[in-house]
Design a protein around this nucleic acid. Structure first.
Lengths: 200, 200
DNA sequence: CGGCTATACCTAGAGGCCCTAGGAAATAAC
DNA sequence: GTTATTTCCTAGGGCCTCTAGGTATAGCCG
């Protein structure tokens, strides 16, 4: 019998495609094996198990998303960079809902694999770089990064879960949310201790 | 053999407890039945199936979370209300990680059940009420509600998934994020068409 | 080119999960 | 006290994960 020529990467990719087409919870050993024209037991040569496969899909998604963002913000600064960053994030999530869902789960995976994956770390670095223009210093910079990541992720997660039932178009709300974030970054408030009226 | 006295509510509660203790993905018919001292087939009298059970847990969580928030913001206004709202949200997610995880998934459940559950709708109403003090009008009000819900959800989701690896304490970042949101709400920007320098 | 080794893929099977069908026992109705 | 209803049960099919061990294919080396 001819070999199928599988690798961990090919198995992961098949899982990612399945996730986008049928939903992340449909990513099973059996389904992925079927899609590859192989028996499920054969996958265990390349992947430790289901958790490992799902973790690899999450890392793949993180890498891909980071790459899209990096391309999108290249050469931009200030609000243009913010909008490009956010749009790239949201578009990736919309184009690859299954892959994106994978990134929402805590990784149950070999830590060495995670350490080698550039995606998550690089994503944070990109966010820091994008914020450079707003003139923030630590620890505000970290706080701002977390605010942005939270809002971007929260918005696309709620959108994907059908959380925006109102008639108002999510796209319009998204544009306004980015306006508001830009406002928050340009008027970044001083810490509580430094504001007037506080008892030191 | 004595009956166990199950009801849909008791089954849902057992599932919610299991979700918090062992993780939402451990919520299975078998495990819940075991916890109730009953065979798994017995649960199908009270609950349609696994998706139904998980959906009920999600609705329970939404109701509980809404209740906590309502208590927290009672009698408050302005930034105090914003902070109380946000803290109640985050504390609920921290206290009930499994239940909270349930709310992140799209509901595959009988729509009639959803219609009867007060939680989700009431949560949006509370958010609108809390924002009244900022003087926004539609459609900005809806956009602001979505911004807040996105950021709150995104923050606690990232926090739960271990997304904040940096040494900076998430609590401190949370406080600053709320400061920033307050700033954004008080300086809510005019829509793009109305800003200077735009054509038209 | 023929044999050796490593390994990709297989079959077989145990155990867990979801869910249905139909039976038995406890409660409720009269 | 009898009947009707509902709860919980046993039995079983189908799909899932994962392991053990066998077979065949590919690469390597003489």
């Amino acid at each position: 019998m001819a070999r199928a020529g599988l690798t961990a990467a090919r198995v992961t990719l098949a899982g990612a495609e399945l996730a986008d087409e049928a939903g992340f919870d449909q990513v099973t050993m059996s389904q992925v094996a079927r899609r590859l024209g192989v028996k499920d037991a054969s996958l265990y040569t390349h992947v430790r198990g289901l958790d490992d496969l799902r973790g690899r899909i999450a890392l793949l998604a993180a890498d891909e998303k980071t790459l899209r963002i990096a391309e999108a913000i290249a050469g931009l600064a200030g609000k243009d960079a913010l909008v490009a960053f956010a749009d790239a994030w949201r578009e990736y999530a919309a184009a690859h809902p299954g892959r994106y869902m994978a990134t929402q789960l805590p990784l149950k995976i070999d830590p060495a694999l995670v350490a080698n994956a550039p995606g998550p770390r690089r994503a944070v670095e990109l966010t820091y770089g994008m914020l450079r223009g707003y003139g923030l210093a630590e620890p505000d910079l970290t706080d701002a990064v977390r605010l942005l990541r939270s809002t971007f992720h929260g918005f696309v997660a709620l959108e994907a879960a059908g959380g925006f039932a109102h008639e108002r178009s999510p796209q319009d709300s998204w544009v306004r949310a980015l306006d508001a974030l830009h406002t928050a970054l340009t008027h970044w408030p001083a810490p509580r201790e430094a504001r007037e009226g506080d008892p030191t």
